[in-house]
Design a protein around this nucleic acid. Structure first.
Length: 428
RNA sequence: GUGGCCUUAGCUCAAUUGGCAGAGCAUCGGAUUGUGGCUCCGAAGGUCACGGGUUCGAGCCCCGUAGGCCACCCCA
């Protein structure tokens, strides 16, 4: 029983896990770059008010999941670890006057987020998101670009069975009326609401729509739909988003029950979902438009849209779908020696090869040659450089561990020979 | 935050109605001392998650705690 362990809901990404994340993060960076989004890095923590104001005081994320940092006595600031990246990025947009940059400002970041949830498979207190934001463009085309970018991430990552769900949740012009109507509808059927659902009626009516309670199915099917109650501007925007998606052949499903957990969303909401897996962590990512957020955080009224994709869940689903981690890049050569104690020479030869920019491991453990070669084989190294008595004549043995062949090479030619072998290996 | 199931070596798992904690893999070492993969031999590795209780005796029964998982809640 270890004395110390990783905190609840966190985990260590061991080299094999980290290799998967590396690949995903490289793909994320490459895709964002391809689409013209520039990397940004904001702090892992912010003034708590950034999240309280931005995300909404009465959301679950702020009410019960925010990782608050106890303020030091001499400081008034109340801080919290970021539960999502958008609020911090928008804060940076306002702070640095990005409204004077060419609009829209297209930004991306990938990193850990923190939520004080009860952990489960695919649900962690520290989790990684690939995030993309376009701030300063109200048009529907950018919505489609972002949705398509997110979908492409899953495709290029190799995730199978990703579905794209889209909806419009209206704006301040039409949503209040819809919410009122929906509240009235459910109140009229209050006697049919399970107790837990009755609580949500007053807190967040929209949440009733995506209830998993079977008792709600019939009631929800007959509930008024936001897509039927959008104002003219929102309806036109939504139609255009769908037309843009159809224009690039991207399959999507309109899901009227798709609502978002954070207050700042307006109009377009979307989610990437993978069906048919064990467990309920089927939402791989999601996002939406947040036309009110910049103003909420002290900037001029500025539209924005973005998404966050959960890398932990992508890694989980990839593993479930049978995708294995890419093999670690094995060293080109391992320097071994007949004299177990002569680590000086092994270290020196390896250093020379590394200076020639070759990927070389030195076996510095004091074990006999057979064990050194065994370890080199397990490493997957292509060559073993064997140092023995030939060194007196300025030679070493170079053994091809895959072919089982071996030949004498002058130490002076070693780097050149290995470099040539590596080049021909890569091109052959 | 609610309920349920689970926790034995680094990993995957055994252990009779309560009666001396084991295997495979991995690790390290050996097989007449300068050659890996195969094979054989050996070693190390455990507070049976942690803390109490019952009992002559607890990995096994009871209570609590922690962690994991599942369903909620929520979301990525």
């Amino acid at each position: 029983m270890p004395t110390y362990r990783a905190p609840r809901g966190t985990r260590d990404l061991l080299p094999d896990d980290r290799a998967v994340f590396d690949r995903l993060m490289r793909l994320a960076a490459d895709l964002a770059h391809r689409y013209g989004y520039r990397p940004i890095e904001t702090p892992l923590f912010e003034q708590a008010a950034v999240f309280e104001r931005g995300i909404g005081e009465v959301t679950d994320v702020v009410e019960k999941e925010l990782f608050r940092i106890a303020p030091r006595s001499e400081e008034a600031e109340s801080w919290a670890l970021r539960p999502e990246p958008t609020a911090g990025i928008v804060r940076a947009y306002v702070q640095h006057g990005m409204q004077t940059w060419p609009q829209p400002v297209k930004l991306t970041t990938t990193g850990p987020m923190f939520r004080y949830d009860r952990p489960q498979a695919g649900r962690y207190r520290q989790f990684w998101q690939f995030d993309v934001e376009a701030i300063g463009d109200a048009g529907p085309a950018i919505d489609a670009e972002i949705i398509e970018l997110g979908y492409r991430f899953y495709m290029e990552a190799g995730v199978e069975g990703v579905e794209v769900l889209v909806n419009s949740i209206g704006d301040p012009a039409c949503r209040p009326a819809y919410v009122a109507q929906l509240t009235e509808y459910y109140r009229g059927h209050a006697d049919r609401l399970p107790p837990t659902e009755r609580d949500r009626l007053e807190r967040n009516v929209l949440r009733l729509l995506d209830s998993k309670d079977p008792a709600m199915a019939e009631l929800n099917a007959a509930a008024p739909r936001i897509t039927d109650r959008l104002c003219e501007a929102c309806a036109a925007h939504f139609e255009s988003v769908k037309a843009h998606l159809a224009g690039v052949g991207l399959a999507f499903r309109v899901e009227p029950a798709l609502v978002r957990g954070l207050d700042y969303y307006t109009r377009t909401a979307f989610e990437f979902y993978v069906a048919g897996r064990e467990g309920q962590q089927q939402a791989l990512g999601g996002g939406g438009r947040y036309d009110g957020l910049v103003a909420l955080l002290g900037g001029k009224p500025t539209p924005g849209i973005g998404f966050g994709l959960g890398l932990d869940r992508v890694a989980l689903v990839l593993a479930e779908q049978g995708h294995v981690a890419p093999p670690e890049v094995a060293p080109l050569a391992v320097v071994v020696g007949a004299d177990p104690d002569d680590t000086v020479t092994r270290f020196r030869v390896a250093t020379t090869l590394r200076a020639a920019r070759l990927r070389v491991r030195a076996d510095l453990a004091r074990r006999k040659l057979g064990r050194q070669l065994e370890a080199a084989g397990k490493d997957g190294a292509h060559f073993a450089v064997i140092i023995g008595d030939e060194l007196a004549a300025g030679d070493v043995q170079v053994r091809d561990l895959q072919a089982g062949t071996q030949r004498t090479v002058p130490l002076d030619d070693l780097a050149r020979e290995l470099a040539r072998a590596e080049a021909s290996h890569h091109h052959g």
